[in-house]
Write a protein that binds this DNA or RNA. Structure first.
Lengths: 238, 238
DNA sequence: TTATGCCAACATGCATGCAAGTTGGCATAC
DNA sequence: GTATGCCAACTTGCATGCATGTTGGCATAA
């Protein structure tokens, strides 16, 4: 998903379609497997074995693994196989700071647009927030999680900064398992909806400082609820 | 330079030393060549040729190029060679937003420490700022640039977030050429020193919001001076 | 029982060969 | 002179072989 295109470059130049390569396939398959815990963290795999399982030779697997390492999802131990990365509480702290930084700046940028732009953004974000609210009333946790993800994705993407989008994407992949795990444990779904509305309001008002502050509040509260939860679970890593 | 270690993971786990591989060598050499413009942007190289020049086979070069692509420094055109990425004004805009986001959050974190930590950070930052001031008085532009780089590097590194450090490092690599070019054109060196002092003061006061604001001011002013400069040079890319 | 050391199995690093896609230029037709 | 089409040269994608580093277990000795 969206990982087909190359890295840099602010769009614009003609998108040369990349024919699907085995490397891309391996990258996607491995990432998927890691995200849905088919490869549990701490698992010690070998490129040979992965290659066999995916029906290709070691080369494309090796290259895919390099990319996954760059993404922080695995670690290549020279001549000792690849290790699926676990997430320590300290990683979660780091990840939240990155999110706060990037989403905060995105919110500032969004609140700094002309009226028409702000209204369009606010409408899009409000739609996702409404979906969250409804999912909450239905008690539909997965739907709530998806709508929440869409809200935050839109928040960053609408800022129109490809690098920020990419950073958030990478960070989201890293923290995917944590989100899945904690979705079931969270009590503050209602608070999230309210905070989202506050963010939207600040954007609509065209008040960058307030938008930034509301994003900070939202993410830091969520983090401060999440970390003790992980601790109480005795999870030193996940 | 600090690119030897793997990606993720908040330090802590024992550092298994990686024996230097040809891939690492190729990565470092290529990056260096790109940063100092031995490979000019837009240059169309072939892996074969690079391999020959570095005295190794295509394989390690290919893998190094993958990493450079992940860093946004080159683009691999399938079966048509590798393209050294240029920087468009829009890229510069994106880059500054990322810097503002990350450095801003770093400054907040620094200002949120207990007294001792803040004072240590402030002292370190003040030392670099003093070096800038002296370099300015001597008219020593390169020294000014190095001290400025050290200031901003310390600002982020002292926040103790490996992911933020890595993001800034990547972004710095991407914008290296722009910095080198514009160092000669800048007039506002004195203003930078003053703004650095304001950032330090806010951190020392323990006022996160103010520290964030001062970083914003500093970077956005610099950006707004830089962009017209690039435009007036008629540089559509560099 | 415990400690030591050797070794076979195994993992990746790297080189190289072959397959397939892309390009630029030359020959040809008009 | 201009347009068309074909082909040779070139480039990467991928498979595979060999070299080398790592490991866990078994045999051996204390």
């Amino acid at each position: 998903m969206a990982r087909t295109r190359a890295a840099g470059h602010a769009a614009k130049d003609q998108d040369i379609e990349k024919s699907p390569s085995l490397v891309d396939g391996a990258y996607a398959a491995l990432k998927q497997a890691i995200l849905d815990s088919s490869f549990a963290p701490g698992y010690h795999a070998s490129e040979q074995e992965i290659a066999l399982r995916l029906g290709m030779s070691r080369t494309p697997v090796h290259e895919a693994v390099i990319r996954l390492q760059e993404d922080g999802l695995v670690r290549v131990l020279s001549r000792r196989g690849v290790l699926i990365c676990a997430l320590a509480p300290d990683d979660v702290r780091e990840i939240y700071d990155v999110i706060v930084a990037i989403e905060g700046r995105a919110a500032e940028l969004l609140a700094d647009q002309p009226d028409a732009g702000r209204e369009a953004v606010a409408a899009a974000l409000a739609a996702e927030t409404e979906a969250m609210s409804q999912a909450w009333r239905r008690g539909d946790l997965p739907a709530w999680g998806l709508a929440d993800a869409r809200f935050h994705k839109a928040l960053v993407e609408r800022a129109g900064n490809g690098r920020m989008t990419r950073i958030i994407q990478t960070i989201n992949d890293q923290s995917h398992r944590a989100r899945m795990l904690t979705l079931k444990l969270r009590r503050e779904l209602e608070a999230s909806v309210e905070e989202h509305r506050a963010i939207i309001a600040a954007i609509l008002e065209g008040d960058p400082a307030k938008a930034l502050a509301r994003v900070h509040d939202h993410r830091l509260r969520a983090r401060d609820e999440l970390l003790p939860l992980l601790d109480s679970f005795g999870l030193k890593h996940l």
